Simulated assay, not measured.
Amino acid sequence: MADAPAYIVANFIVHDAAEYRQYEKGFFPILKRHGGSFFTYDDNPDTLEGSEPREGRVVLFQFPSEAAARAWYADPDYQALSEFRRAGTELKFLTLLHGLPPRA
């Protein structure tokens, strides 16, 4: 049986655009190296229900499996690059969601 996809959802507020741009420049090559696909981002998401609306940017991307997502996050190159994100943003959450396995 093939692995189920995994999704990463991130929510953060950019407070230093120059630092964040350094992160963006290196993000996509590392994402692709781990089989990841970028879906979308939104700087003005709408919370349809719930008492805690999210602020800032919401990003969504996918990996072919949970193992690939965890390998991306643990990659020393990504961890070094993420220091720019940490310096330039206030992270609200970085969440791994488990996808459903493919149907036969």
Rank of each mutant, 00 (worst) to 15 (best):
A4W: 03
A4P: 00
P5A: 08
P5Y: 05
P5C: 04
A6Y: 00
Y7H: 11
Y7W: 06
V9K: 09
V9T: 15
V9I: 14
A10K: 11
N11E: 08
I13R: 13
I13M: 13
D16A: 10
Y20A: 02
Y20R: 06
R21I: 04
R21G: 09
Q22D: 13
Q22M: 11
Q22C: 10
Y23W: 08
Y23L: 04
Y23G: 01
E24A: 11
K25T: 09
K25A: 13
G26F: 00
F27V: 03
F27W: 04
F27L: 06
F28S: 12
P29K: 00
I30R: 04
L31I: 05
L31D: 02
K32N: 13
R33I: 03
H34W: 06
H34L: 10
H34G: 05
G35Q: 10
G35P: 04
G36K: 02
S37N: 12
F39A: 05
F39D: 02
F39E: 06
T40P: 00
Y41Q: 13
D42R: 13
N44L: 11
P45T: 07
P45M: 06
P45G: 08
D46K: 15
T47E: 11
L48E: 14
G50Y: 13
S51N: 15
E52S: 15
E52P: 04
P53M: 14
P53L: 11
R54A: 12
E55F: 11
E55L: 13
E55D: 14
E55H: 13
G56S: 12
G56R: 08
G56Q: 06
R57W: 11
R57D: 05
V58W: 10
V58P: 01
V59A: 00
L60H: 12
L60Y: 08
F61A: 02
F61Q: 00
Q62F: 01
Q62L: 07
Q62A: 12
F63C: 03
P64F: 02
P64I: 00
P64C: 01
P64D: 01
S65A: 04
A67K: 14
A68E: 03
A68T: 04
A69Y: 00
A69I: 04
A69V: 10
A71G: 06
A71R: 09
A71N: 12
Y73N: 06
P76M: 02
D77G: 01
D77Y: 07
D77V: 01
D77T: 02
A80L: 02
A80G: 02
A80Y: 03
S82N: 12
S82G: 03
S82I: 09
S82H: 10
S82R: 15
S82T: 07
F84C: 09
R85D: 04
